[in-house]
Design a protein around this nucleic acid. Structure first.
Lengths: 217, 217
DNA sequence: ACCTGAACACCGTTCAAGT
DNA sequence: ACCTGAACACCGTTCAAGT
């Protein structure tokens, strides 16, 4: 009765469909990051030829948008039942935790600036909460972009420990920087950096600024 | 006397060096975006073999970091001579305009989370301005990340008009979405969107939030 | 010290062909 | 309607060799 048959000697070969392919794609990025999502790797994962995917997605962009769509649609953003502050904390806390659960997500969305239509769920929460306080629609949309930009950038920052240098790169780096060029090191947050507290602090500042704007109406 | 000789029939072949290569790399990203910066394209642009670049950069990451380093170092961030509000407006206005002048820059920095050391110039401006108002060092660093995340995300958003679909992709999209799958369109800001005003609005909210935090000390 | 050339293991996508 | 196979024009990087 289950039509998910195993053809040939391929371990699992589900029916190809948008839903199944998006499932597999999320598996790839969760295991190995946004860079691991390629048409070829996905085709390999489901036991099919790369070109077969183009019957279900018009391009890699389309695939990425579908992944973002699925992930965002699987999240509830309007769970706060307090005042507007609590609603926004809930909404962007949910967005942040979604990004932390799927560390490849911010990179994926940043790739080519893909913004899935589902992103308008958190936008609607924001607009509703702020317009109820007398803020104009334009300003509430602007505030949405502020909150989203902050949340995504912080989540991306947290999810990106500086990758270790390849051994050959280390050797080249020593050779190059030993000849008059300054070091090109990057600095990371100290290991004891509290990302939760830091995010909460920034969000608090934004909410306080919003409150001032609302009071001044 | 000028040692920038033209060898062979290559139009211009400057001496290879970090500085000259970074110059050429900036030329590439300014003309065709962050995606146009590849080891091979850069080698081609300066008339040399790809592998020659590895005598001057240890990896593509190293090259990207050097580009970011140069661009950020070429900018003045501490030009505001008013109160802390004006100093921060100047600092992050400068960062924003740098990103708009080099639309590939935010993408480049986002790539692998490269943060050039030079980014600590705007951080120092922020710390100095806020600690003078009694804010702790930790909170001023957190505020720096808030301001930077917001500024970069807005600039990236502004620099990324949705690219036109390739003709073949349009055909595939019609075929796919004509069969039960919902459309996977993306929405852009309306064409009359005022990015300057929107950025200024968000920055104002952040500054207002900071002021509240300062007053509550 | 610096550069070349061939090779490896990848990409997204096109095109023509199969069923 | 859906999938394959070969090909194209790309990637970053390794390795061995030249001068």
């Amino acid at each position: 009765m289950d039509r998910t048959t195993t053809t040939g000697n391929n371990p699992r070969r589900p029916d190809l469909s948008r839903d199944n392919l998006v499932d597999a794609a999320i598996g790839l990025i969760d295991r190995d990051g946004a860079g691991a999502l390629s048409i070829r790797a996905l085709a390999d994962a489901v036991g099919v030829t790369p070109m077969a995917l183009y019957n279900h997605f018009s391009s890699k962009r389309d695939l990425i948008a579908a992944v973002g769509e699925r992930l965002i649609r699987s999240t509830q953003f309007d769970g706060g039942h307090g005042d507007w502050r609590e609603q926004l904390r809930y909404c962007f806390g949910a967005l942040r935790h979604l990004c932390l659960r799927h560390p490849g997500l911010p990179d994926l969305l940043k790739l080519d600036g893909v913004v899935p239509e589902a992103a308008y769920a958190p936008m609607d929460v924001t607009k509703k909460a702020l317009q109820a306080q007398g803020m104009s629609e334009l300003d509430s949309v602007r505030t949405f972009f502020l909150l989203t930009g902050y949340t995504l950038s912080q989540a991306a920052f947290q999810s990106h420990p500086t990758p270790a240098l390849a051994p050959t790169e280390k050797v080249r780096r020593e050779r190059i920087s030993g000849r008059g060029h300054g070091p090109v090191d990057r600095r990371d947050p100290p290991p004891e950096w509290d990302f939760d507290a830091s995010f909460s602090f920034g969000l608090g500042i934004i909410l306080e600024g919003i409150e001032g704007r609302i009071r001044a109406r």
